[in-house]
């Protein structure tokens, strides 16, 4: 492994984050605070508890997942799309690096940023609601696995996208609806049986359920299945990245 090169990309991407600290960190924190006000206080005041947990606390894992997914995908996709767009990708392609090292640099930076923001939101949430974390190690594991897998997805989207519209398309049309319908703000047990069954086809449900389990020790689906779902998703993304590496798809003519 060529660590110096990976570190160069990682540091470059992180410095981009710190240069645009306002957009990078402040805006997700503000939007999360808004969710707390709207869902936690306004609506939550009419819902006493979900499965014995205060509504405000109940939505915290879902909110963090929403942000991690959005941040991971948008950071990684933008990170690799921008050099393609302005043409500086020639440097990555002529550097003595393997494609997987390039991926490690970009995905590492995107995942780091997503986890950082998740932790900031967690901290923000602790001011609003009474938080407890039943399985901290698993909480971190879920967070890292999710951040890495969705950063990989973002990287793939960045390679695939031919313009800025396509770059926005997936986060907007897929991630947000899947998270909203994946039980970020409710338990699927609150749904009529038919819709509860449909929800089972939403992969994000398994992520949120597993993550929520690490907080409150309660899950809609068995934790092992949640882990399996992330594992399969991670493997699929790695497979696609490997295929891109073999074929040079949309990067090398």
């Amino acid at each position: 492994m060529n660590w110096i090169s990976i570190w160069a990309i990682y540091r470059f991407e992180m410095s981009r984050t710190f240069r645009t600290i306002a957009q990078s960190v402040v805006s997700p924190v503000i939007s999360t605070a808004l969710y707390f006000v709207v869902f936690g206080s306004a609506i939550g005041s009419r819902i006493e508890s979900v499965e014995g947990i205060g509504y405000g606390a109940f939505i915290v894992p879902g909110l963090i997942m929403l942000t991690v997914l959005q941040q991971a995908v948008s950071n990684a996709s933008f990170g690799i799309y921008f050099p393609k767009f302005i043409g500086t990708i020639y440097e990555l392609l002529t550097a003595p690096m393997s494609f997987l090292e390039v991926v490690a640099g970009y995905v590492g930076a995107a995942a780091t940023k997503a986890v950082m923001i998740a932790l900031i939101i967690l901290l923000t949430a602790s001011f609003f609601v009474d938080l407890r974390i039943a399985h901290p190690v698993w909480m971190v594991a879920f967070l890292l696995l999710t951040a890495v897998s969705f950063s990989l997805l973002g990287f793939i989207i960045g390679i695939w996208a031919r313009n800025f519209e396509q770059l926005q398309l997936v986060p907007l049309l897929m991630i947000t609806p899947l998270v909203f319908l994946g039980g970020a703000f409710y338990s699927s047990t609150m749904l009529p049986p038919f819709w509860a069954a449909v929800t089972r086809f939403n992969p994000v449900l398994y992520l949120i359920s597993g993550f929520r389990w690490s907080f409150y020790d309660m899950a809609e689906v068995p934790v092992a299945i949640s882990l399996l779902a992330i594992g399969v998703f991670l493997a699929a993304c790695l497979g696609i990245v490997w295929w891109i590496f073999r074929t040079g798809w949309r990067i090398r003519q």
């Binding site: 470059f12 500086t88 440097e91 990555l92 550097a95 003595p96 690096m97």
Partner: peptide, 22 residues
């Protein structure tokens, strides 16, 4: 083709790093 928002020194450092040089 150049990283428009970066400084000259950082861009040059970045390339050196990409090529695996300390």
């Amino acid at each position: 083709s150049i990283e428009v928002f970066e400084t000259v020194m950082n861009s040059v450092r970045f390339t050196r790093g990409l090529f695996g040089k300390r």
